[in-house]
Each structure stands twice: as structure tokens, then as C-alpha cells.
Design a protein around this nucleic acid. Sequence first.
DNA 1: TATATACGGTACTGTCGAGTTTCGGAACCC
DNA 2: GGGTTCCGAAACTCGACAGTACCGTATATA
Lengths: 209, 209
Amino acid sequence: MTQLDTTPVTTASKLGRKRDLTRDPEILDATLDVLAETGYDGMTIDMVAARAKAGKATVYRRWASKSELVIDAVACMKTSDIDFDALPDTGTLRGDLVAMIKPHSIEDGAKKLQVMAGLVSMLSKHPELVDSVREAVTEPRVRVNRIFLNRAIERGEVPADVDVDLLSQVGGALATHRTLILRKPVDRAFVISIIDGVILPACGIRPQP
Amino acid sequence: MTQLDTTPVTTASKLGRKRDLTRDPEILDATLDVLAETGYDGMTIDMVAARAKAGKATVYRRWASKSELVIDAVACMKTSDIDFDALPDTGTLRGDLVAMIKPHSIEDGAKKLQVMAGLVSMLSKHPELVDSVREAVTEPRVRVNRIFLNRAIERGEVPADVDVDLLSQVGGALATHRTLILRKPVDRAFVISIIDGVILPACGIRPQP
DNA sequence: TATATACGGTACTGTCGAGTTTCGGAACCC
DNA sequence: GGGTTCCGAAACTCGACAGTACCGTATATA
């Protein structure tokens, strides 16, 4: 952000020990871990530093404040585990949706939802975080659902007048509600019940044809 | 909770000025206001006292700590604005659902969702709050939806194999997600789109017959 | 009237954590 | 080697807030 540069831009500072760039992602990962475990307000810089086996000064040399550290950590979380170049294509909407349920994606989603829970108190004061969270957590899943639904419409499995945008959000909203408010785990059975109880029926697909 | 009683139970203390019982709900209301505006971690007892035009000692004479005050305030929020003895009965599922959308209920729901947003950080440390929040915010709406859905099934408008429990939760989950994460207002148009884009289609009711 | 408790308001205490500084040591450049 | 910047670790400053104590006043009992 606001980079304090004591040396002129033309002459890059080449004196002294170089900054260990490998520490940046390690500190950011530690930040996300603590964030998921204790939330933003419960998190201290000491916790993050201890988790990353770093000194507090090392953290503050790279980020100006706690809030900037967290904002950066969330922004760098973007790397979704979803590979958009290798999405399942089973021939049915249900097949595609179920194929997305893998132990790894359940685990990854749970972690991101925990991080999101820890960020809720921060969102009102830092609106830019709303966008970061949406890009990193909400949007990837929505996009996948949208692709599956549009495919199903193209092949005539689903009528074209369904509300694709809204239906793409339903799964994520139910998972978020279950994690943040009900504090219950989002497991495979729950995701299946969303697919078979909400999304498919809303697309006009009745149970076991 | 843990009541420190300096006088024996048999001889109720009758000396001195009596406690003004009308201050209790006023302080609890002020607590909910501040909670909705700043969240649990941002809220201070001074804010609550100032809002209620009370002294800090008056607050601490009634509640032992900040957390107990908040827990009590949420528990006393239970009084839902919904009158279960005068639910709409229009003859169609859509009519019933739309009839529940009133300016007052939108406003009341928004306030409760804001309070809920302020409580998220607290839920992991105080599991009893999860139940209070569910009873005060989540459950009343779910119960209404369940009644409407069961009615629609009885009159044959909706097939009996729909997932009533899950569909009853969808609206609340989407509203929660929109308020807490997307930070957008839950207005009449949004609720209508949930009804027409998710709930009714999932019940096998296509748009405008 | 004397005593005791509640009230609003203010001052106080103690803790906790953000952010800064310092230190011994290591890595880099000249 | 000498100067400089990094590292982890620990000590430090400082403001904010939970919780307590006290003040003058109001209201209750005896």
C-alpha cells in the first residue's frame, strides 16, 4: 500500500541482508489459520507471529497494521481449489453437482467459511473486504453452479426460464448459514440434501426418475 | 444467574430505595441497538449506558458482565413480531408467502439480522447463544414457512415429497447471507425473487400459470 | 428523622493488545 | 573487514475498555 521508500526509485536499495520473500506467504497462511480459529477481534499479532515462527517486527516490516495484514491475507486466499479447465461433465445436472463434492473441497470450503466467520465483524468498517471475500469464497462456487445450470439448459434438461443467478447462490448461502449461525458442519450429506431438496426440484427435476 | 444475596431468603430485603424495574428492558433495548450498530467487540458498556441514559453502575448492578448482558438481551428479543394466531391464508402458497412481506416485518427482520451479524464472533465461545439466536431470529420464520408449505401440500397444490424442512430454511439463509456477507439490503424485491425463483419452482409451481 | 439502597455521573484500577524499539546474530554488498 | 539491513525475540509505550469505587441525590423502610 503506502510504501515508505528512503531510497530514490532509480537506485534500488541493494545494501544489507535481503528480505526473505518466502516468509510472506507463510505469515499470510498463519494469519488465515488464526483468523479461522479465533476471528478478527480475538486474533493478536503475537499469535500470528508465533504461528509463523516469526518476530513481530518482521510482520510490521511488511504490513503497516493488523487490518492491512488481514486484508492482504484474504486477498491472497483467492487461489481457489477449483480447476475451471477440468470441471466434471457427466451429462446430467445432478451428476455434475455431485461430482464437485470431494473430501478436499469440503475441507477447503469449511476452512474458508471459518475465515469468513472471523471476518464478519470487520466487513462493515472495510467495504473492500466484501469484494475480496466474494471473489475468494463466494464467487468461485457460484460460477461453477452457473456453468452447470447453463449447460443443463442448453441440453434441454432444465427449462430456460429458471433463475440461474439466484439458484447458483443458494448452495453457498445455505452452507454459510449452517456454519456461521447454526454452527453445524457442512458435510457431504448436507450438500446432497441441498442438491436433491432445493436445486434440482427448483429446476423441475423430481427425485429419482 | 449467580445471584449474590446478602440477606437470608426468608427475610426479603425491604430497606432502601427500590430498584426501578422499568430500566431493565430499556437497558436491554439499548444493548440490542448498540449491538446492531457496532457488533459485540466494538460495543462498550459506556455506549449502552449512554444510550439508555443510565449509569454504568446501574448496568452492573443487574448483569455481572458484558457477555451476560448481551446473552440476556438476545434471549429477551424472543418476542417475534409474527402473530401465529393471525397468519394469512390466501388459498395459494405464493399468496401466503407474499402476504408475509410487510414494511414492518422487513424492518424488524433487518434489525435482527444486524444483531445477528454483531453476535457471530461470540457464538463460538458461547454455544447457548446459538440456541437463543435460533429461537429469536431463525426459527419463527422457518416455522411460518413450514406451516404454509404443509398447508399447500394438504390442499394438493404442492407434491408431498418436497423437503419441507429444508425449503423452510432457504429464505432465511439467503437473507442472512445477503446481510452478513454481501452487505446488501434485504428489500421486498429480493424476497419476491426468493419466492418466485427458488421456493415456488422447487415446489413444482412454474411462473404465472 | 435515621438508615439503607437505587439512581446518574465521574474518577479510578487493572489488564490486554497494537505498534515501537532494542538487541544479538546472520546475510548481503562494497 | 566495515557498513547496512534483515532476522527472531523480548522489552517497552500507550490508549482503550471491563469492571469497581465513590459522589451527591432521590426514594424507600422503620
